[in-house]
Structures are given as structure tokens and as C-alpha cells.
Design a protein around this nucleic acid. Structure first.
Lengths: 191, 191
DNA sequence: CCCTTTTTGTAGTGACCGATACAAAATAGC
DNA sequence: GCTATTTTGTATCGGTCACTACAAAAAGGG
């Protein structure tokens, strides 16, 4: 019972996600959000709580859609080498896709915000991504596919850093070809 | 003639620089600046013009002090390989120095700001840094120290991306040892 | 001393921030 | 149709933003 909602909650969330992606958490204003979502402030607050919770939902949606290539790449290849290679080249593709803002939302949206909860939430996702790379490499070490002296944590930090650098390069206007070249060079570090 | 200034302009500028370095351009408020500089708003505006021009002076000062290791490394080694190696390892040291904010101000301070002038100014510095790496590599190619098929632009983009990734990792709490390992791995891509 | 110039602290300016009060409008159950 | 419930648009809240008007205070030149 009651008046039915006049907007599509999922579509509005996707619009909000892209605002946060492009401008970051703090630089995204509620008026900018409502304009992008095509609704008024009371509708936003009734449907999503407040700006902070809307951001939380946007991050979750991002991880399940635009950012899901990462866990798919790490889980869907027979070797760690192939998994990381796919991860880097898919990052090159996604980060420069003109259909949405450049780079990675989890990497950039929390930079230069004062909300410690936002910073920690995104940092947690980045650390989880780094740990996933490390575990995928360790799996191949234990399986005998990589030398036992392989430094999986250092490699994971390295590839995480390369991916974060690719995100920044994409925001600076790098093309997919530029980032594919970065990915290829980074793989020369493979043990 | 006239009342003498009661604060040291250079010291105040360094304090402002660190505020911009830690919080970025937009997230740094004038009240935060005046608190860090130990002065009141009229003194800030009389001495530096406005927030935007103070930021410009802070960036110039950063390039001449904390960020000067970059051009020194590229100019002070006999080979491009040694220059880039020094560049990466000095970045690892500077980005994690607890005496000042982590990471690189030129890389992080402009992220998620709406002022297009600020974004463009910092992007210009980043592009100049990338171009300096490329020219240093090209010099060794022309001198016969590197194979003629060496892709200097791609290598420059790669090392620029690694440095930007190291800056983000430093902001996420990476240690100097972590970043030294990243630097060592990145150098495996050397032709 | 007095006059001019510059800096200082106080106390604000209008604009925008995130978040809401309120009542009209729209739906469901009876 | 009537009531209860939810959403809607308008208009606004107190707080903070970058910035400044103003006058007292502090210096130099005569």
C-alpha cells in the first residue's frame, strides 16, 4: 500500500555509482547525485538512507558488475601466470572503456576524502584484491608450477601497484593500447 | 615602511604544502590551512592571493624540494638503466618517509577535485615526468646502449605507472621495503 | 611627535554543503 | 468513496565553504 515509487531504484543506483566513480566520494554532492539520478533529495534519502549508505551500495554494485572481472580472471584460468595476464589486460580494457568513467572506482573514489570509514572500506577492497593475487600465486607454488622460492607477497604488491598505476594513467587519458603495453611489460617480472 | 609580517612566509608555505599533500586540493579547507600555518585568513590572502594561487606556489615548492629527486635521478646517472633504477628506489624511500605525508603530491593532490585548472596543472607535471623518462631512454638508444627496437614511450608509460602505483601503495600503508621490492620487480621489464 | 603604510584579529559576507519539514499527490485495502 | 500509507516536489534547515570589510596595532619616514 501507499504511493508507488516513480523511479527505477537500480537505474538510479547505477547513475549514482557513476557520479561517485567520476568525482570520488567527497567531491560528489547530493545535488549532483539527485541531478544525475533524476530525483529530488527526499526520494534519495527515502530510498538509500543518506549519502554514505548510498556510496556503500554503489561500491557493492561496482564490485558485482564493473569490478567483477578481477575475481573472474583470478578464478578462471588454469595457471597463476595466465590469471594475472588476463587480469592485467582486462584491466586495460575496462579502465579505458568510454562507456563509463576511466580507471577503477575502488582505487580512486576514496582519495582525498576526510571520511575515515570510506577510506577504510575502499582500502579493504584493495587489500582483498592484493591478497587474492597472492593466494593465486601461492597455489601454483604449492602445486609445483612455480619455483618454491617465489616471493608471492612481493609479486602481489607489484601487480597491485601496476594495476593502480594503470588506473591513474587511464584517468590521465591513456588509451587501451597504452595500458596493454604496460600490462605486457609488467608480465616480464613474472618468475 | 608599514607593519612587519609576524610569520615566516616560507615556513607557512611549507605547512600549506603538507596540508595539500595530505588532503588534496579540494579537501583542504582554508580554515585547515590557516590552522596549520598558524595565521588568520586575512594574512593568508594578503601573502598568497587566494587558495588556488597558494596551491600553485605549494606545487612549485614541492617540485623544487621533495619532488626534485626525480629529475636529479634522471640526470645524474651514466645510463638510463641506472637512472630509472635510482628513480624507482628513491621514490620508494621518499614516498614512505614518515617526516611528511606518504606518496607523491603531484600524483594524488588533484584526484577528485572539480577545479579543472588544478587537474591540468598536476597532469602536466606528470606528463613532463613521463616525457623525461622517455627522453632518458631514447638517449641511450641513440647512443647504442640499448637495442634500436626499444619502445621508449611504452617503457616510460610503464615506469610512470609503476611510480604512480607505488604512491598509492604508500598511501595505503606500504613500507619502504615493500616499495623497494616493487621497484626491483619493475626493473625486470628492462629491455 | 605625526603621518602613511602594511599587517593583524574579529567578525562577518553570500554560496553551497548534507539533510529535512511539510503538505499535496498517488496508491492499496476496505 | 474513504482511510491509511508511502512518495512526491517545494522550500528550507543549520553548518561549513572560500573569502573579505573593518578598525586596531605596529612599523618606517619626516
Amino acid at each position: 500500500m501507499g504511493r508507488t515509487r516513480a523511479f527505477d531504484r537500480d537505474v538510479a543506483l547505477e547513475r549514482a555509482l557513476e557520479e561517485f566513480w567520476r568525482h570520488g566520494y567527497e567531491a560528489t554532492s547530493v545535488s549532483g547525485l539527485t541531478a544525475a539520478m533524476g530525483i529530488n533529495p527526499p526520494s534519495l534519502y527515502a530510498a538509500f538512507g543518506d549519502k554514505r549508505r548510498l556510496f556503500g551500495e554503489a561500491v557493492r554494485r561496482y564490485q558485482e558488475t564493473h569490478g567483477a572481472f578481477s575475481s573472474r580472471a583470478l578464478a578462471g584460468e588454469p595457471t597463476a601466470r595466465a590469471a594475472v595476464e588476463r587480469l592485467l589486460h582486462e584491466a586495460a580494457e575496462v579502465y579505458t572503456d568510454p562507456a563509463h568513467p576511466p580507471g577503477c572506482m575502488v582505487i580512486s573514489a576514496g582519495i582525498n576524502t576526510s571520511d575515515a570509514g570510506v577510506i577504510e572500506e575502499l582500502r579493504g577492497h584493495r587489500e582483498a584484491g592484493k591478497a587474492a593475487i597472492r593466494r593465486r600465486i601461492e597455489r601454483d607454488v604449492e602445486a609445483g608450477l612455480l619455483p618454491p622460492e617465489t616471493d608471492a607477497p612481493a609479486l602481489a604488491t607489484f601487480f597491485a601497484a601496476v594495476i593502480q598505476g594503470m588506473s591513474t594513467q587511464a584517468r590521465d587519458g591513456a588509451t587501451r593500447a597504452d595500458l596493454d603495453a604496460v600490462a605486457t611489460l609488467a608480465l616480464r617480472a613474472w618468475p
